[in-house]
């Protein structure tokens, strides 16, 4: 599946999108901003900028992590929780850690891409070995303190399987329909809620905040020096 047609392509471009919404161009700036933060704070993180096979101007950021997990759900939950609380990514790097004999290594490919309809970043992910069941996904990837909130959204929670917009294969994704409202207080001056919306984060800092809100729900937390973590 390709969702590679930006709505701004049709006829004359509409007025520029204002934050919290991103256009193709501002998304590219946001990705560059995140990479700058990653390079400064998480040098060992594996990431790559990739292009849609349908339209090279549609880029996405792939972040790859691996965690130890045990097939039994209880152990898996503990393992992810431990991973989630580590302060540096060095400890998550499978190449730096011997794999415990009873555990398995789960490689997770996170894809941060722009939804052409919602005009916000969306998080798609695939795993190796693949996870097919929603309950296994929760056990392996959703931190315990996030599960109730994630499960409370929509028909079966805020995480679903879908087709990858660019790769013609199934993947998991976090629903983007509430992303704009979650981001608004952080990136706009009139964001409300006691003046949290200073607007200082800007496009460059957008994805750092976004990771703290959306990435956190599926275990993608990155320690960033400023603005990347939400207590």
């Amino acid at each position: 599946m390709s969702h590679d047609t930006d709505m701004t392509d049709v006829d004359d471009a509409p007025p520029p999108l204002a934050l919290p919404f991103l256009s193709k161009e501002t998304f590219a700036v946001a990705v560059a901003g995140l990479i700058a933060q990653l390079d400064a704070c998480a040098a060992d993180l594996r990431y790559a900028i990739k292009e849609s096979p349908y339209d090279p101007s549609d880029i996405y950021l792939e972040i790859t992590r691996s965690i130890d997990f045990a097939p039994s759900s209880d152990t898996a939950a503990t393992s992810v929780a431990t991973t989630d609380e580590t302060s540096t990514l060095d400890e998550d790097d499978p190449e730096a850690l011997p794999v415990q004999s009873q555990n398995h290594n789960l490689v997770i490919h996170y894809h941060i891409l722009l939804s052409p309809i919602y005009a916000v970043p969306t998080l798609h992910l695939t795993t190796n070995p693949p996870i097919h069941a929603l309950s296994s996904f929760y056990d392996s990837l959703v931190p315990p303190d996030q599960r109730a909130a994630v499960a409370a959204v929509g028909v079966q929670g805020g995480i679903s399987q879908t087709e990858h917009p660019y790769l013609q294969r199934t993947c998991w994704f976090v629903h983007p329909c509430q992303t704009a409202e979650a981001m608004r207080p952080w990136v706009t001056r009139d964001g409300g809620e006691g003046g949290r919306g200073s607007g200082e984060v800007g496009v460059e800092g957008y994805l750092g905040i976004w990771l703290g809100i959306v990435g956190r729900a599926v275990g993608l937390t990155v320690p960033l020096r400023r603005g990347g973590q939400i207590a």
Binding site: G154, Q156, Q161, T162, R169, C177
Partner: peptide, 17 residues
Amino acid sequence: DLLTTLTPTSTHDSFIN
């Protein structure tokens, strides 16, 4: 790889999405 897992709620979920 090509087909989402079918569950009692998955069709409703993808429809509403």
